[in-house]
């Protein structure tokens, strides 16, 4: 890493301010003003529209294995989704996924 101390602080502070402004954007500017139904209908799908896409590359091409698909991680992801979908239990899904990951890593070595 080849930055001056001031540059690093600049990066940290600018990221902090920028990230805050992104989070504040709609909440701060729109507030309690009503939004049209079609906008609300789209916004209801925000989390299912972002989180799967955010995670998919991390599942298929994990950085920890230099982007090579990894059986333990693929299986852990599959188990997490399946358990979460059928039991609706977030905790049970996470624990099953983590158990699958570490179980398979232990077995495969």
């Amino acid at each position: 890493m080849n930055y001056t101390d001031a540059q690093i602080w600049g990066i940290i502070v600018a990221m902090g301010v920028g990230t805050f402004l992104i989070r504040f954007s709609f909440l701060g500017l729109i507030g309690s003003r009503p939004m049209p139904p079609w906008v609300l209908r789209h916004l209801r799908y925000t989390s299912v529209a972002i989180l799967p896409g955010l995670v998919a590359p991390l599942v298929l091409w994990p950085a920890a294995t230099d982007g090579q698909p990894d059986l333990a991680r693929l299986a852990a992801a599959g188990v997490t989704v399946a358990v979460g979908y059928w039991t609706k239990g977030v905790v049970l899904a996470m624990l099953s996924g983590a158990a699958t990951l570490y179980g398979l890593q232990y077995v495969i070595g």
């Binding site: 989390s47 299912v48 989180l51 799967p52 955010l54 995670v55 991390l58 599942v59 994990p62 950085a63 920890a64 333990a72 991680r73 852990a76 992801a77 997490t80 989704v81 399946a82 358990v83 979460g84 979908y85 039991t87 609706k88 239990g89 977030v90 905790v91 899904a93 996470m94 996924g97 983590a98 990951l101 570490y102 890593q105």
Partner: peptide, 16 residues
Amino acid sequence: GLDFAMPIAFLAMVAP
């Protein structure tokens, strides 16, 4: 395997 904590958490939140 610490790297995979975040994907598992996000998948567990989205599946239900």
